[in-house]
Amino acid sequence: MPAPTALLRAPEKLAEDEVITDAPQDTTEPVLELGASNIEPAPSNEVQLSTDTSMDIDTEGRPKFAPSTDTTTIHRIETRRVPVPPHRMTPLKASWSKIYPPLVEHLKLQVRMNIKSKAVELRTSKYTTDSGALQKGEDFVKAFTLGFEIDDAIALLRLDDLYIETFEIKDVKTLSGDHLSRAIGRIAGQNGKTKFAIENASRTRVVLADSKIHILGAFQNIRIARESIVSLILGAPPGKVYGNLRTVASRMKERF
């Protein structure tokens, strides 16, 4: 019986520098240690649910939760510039010591008066906590530039439902020359009597700046003052306007 070809194969000639060593064969299987740091467990798609369903409940049956941790907030620096008319620069310089304390101490803003560009510049900082502080500061400075007193403008910082409305006499009726002057005179009255009556009855503040009229107050109060001023512009006698203001004032007292 002929021998298999695999058994008759001649051994290959080894190189002169090649040495064969018989390494001991380890037949023992490797053992995995659970605490080994170099062994990573196989990923598993199974979701392990916590079996701890206990919850702290107070005496009234409401759950107790741990207080949330403070997260770091990113402060974005924003800048606003309020232009100042030339005729309001002198009052601004004279009243600057009363203008900047509410902005810096109450709103935590950075403020400066730029004389070269004739503007008041406002900027937020890392100490600013109110998100609407910049808008309130701009409204406060703008109210002063329009001609309102500082005490009236500060109310914009402390109350949230105050607004400023501006319109011109020409928006109501096209007047010019002496007719425009008489309309302004009817709104102001003798020594400002009519303007003060409108302010006290409607709980607003009115500024007459040539043919422009600025009203500071709540939404409903601004509407009452605007209707009275429009009636005077259209030629209504002041006595009739006073009567309407008395009626409105009595209704407002009953409401509050």
Score class of each variant (00 low, 15 high):
residue 103 L to M: 11
residue 38 N to H: 15
residue 74 I to R: 02
residue 34 L to T: 08
residue 56 D to V: 09
residue 78 E to N: 06
residue 44 S to V: 14
residue 223 R to N: 08
residue 131 S to F: 06
residue 25 Q to C: 08
residue 100 Y to Q: 14
residue 78 E to T: 12
residue 165 E to A: 09
residue 115 I to P: 01
residue 186 R to W: 04
residue 6 A to L: 04
residue 99 I to E: 08
residue 22 D to H: 07
residue 22 D to R: 05
residue 189 G to N: 00
residue 98 K to A: 15
residue 206 V to H: 01
residue 240 K to E: 08
residue 219 F to G: 06
residue 83 P to H: 13
residue 78 E to Y: 08
residue 82 V to I: 15
residue 3 A to S: 04
residue 245 L to M: 14
residue 119 A to M: 15
residue 181 S to D: 01
residue 253 K to Q: 10
residue 117 S to W: 09
residue 152 D to P: 02
residue 105 E to K: 09
residue 191 N to R: 00
residue 244 N to Q: 09
residue 86 P to R: 06
residue 181 S to R: 05
residue 148 F to N: 08
residue 147 G to N: 03
residue 40 E to T: 14
residue 5 T to H: 06
residue 181 S to F: 02
residue 247 T to M: 12
residue 26 D to K: 05
residue 251 R to C: 00
residue 58 D to N: 13
residue 24 P to N: 09
residue 255 R to K: 10
residue 192 G to K: 00
residue 76 R to P: 00
residue 60 E to N: 08
residue 241 V to R: 06
residue 77 I to E: 08
residue 19 V to Y: 11
residue 103 L to T: 07
residue 204 T to W: 06
residue 225 A to G: 02
residue 244 N to H: 12
residue 24 P to V: 10
residue 182 R to F: 03
residue 225 A to Y: 00
residue 173 K to A: 05
residue 8 L to G: 01
residue 243 G to D: 05
residue 113 M to Q: 10
residue 251 R to I: 04
residue 208 L to V: 14
residue 137 G to I: 03
residue 230 V to Y: 05
residue 130 D to E: 10
residue 138 E to S: 08
residue 226 R to C: 03
residue 46 E to K: 13
residue 186 R to Y: 11
residue 67 P to N: 07
residue 208 L to K: 14
residue 152 D to T: 12
residue 237 P to A: 13
residue 83 P to F: 10
residue 11 P to C: 10
residue 63 P to Y: 10
residue 163 Y to F: 12
residue 130 D to R: 07
residue 37 S to P: 12
residue 67 P to K: 05
residue 131 S to C: 02
residue 41 P to E: 13
residue 125 S to A: 14
residue 35 G to M: 09
residue 189 G to M: 00
residue 166 T to E: 10
residue 129 T to K: 07
residue 113 M to K: 03
residue 43 P to T: 06
residue 6 A to F: 10
residue 43 P to K: 07
residue 44 S to I: 12
residue 159 L to I: 03
residue 191 N to D: 00
residue 218 A to L: 08
residue 235 G to A: 04
residue 73 T to K: 10
residue 128 T to H: 07
residue 53 T to V: 15
residue 12 E to R: 13
residue 42 A to G: 12
residue 156 L to R: 07
residue 214 H to M: 03
residue 94 A to G: 05
residue 164 I to K: 01
residue 113 M to C: 13
residue 133 A to P: 01
residue 238 P to G: 03
residue 148 F to H: 06
residue 211 S to K: 14
residue 128 T to G: 02
residue 33 E to Y: 12
residue 218 A to G: 15
residue 123 R to G: 04
residue 162 L to G: 00
residue 191 N to P: 00
residue 133 A to Y: 04
residue 209 A to T: 08
residue 157 L to T: 04
residue 106 H to W: 02
residue 95 S to H: 15
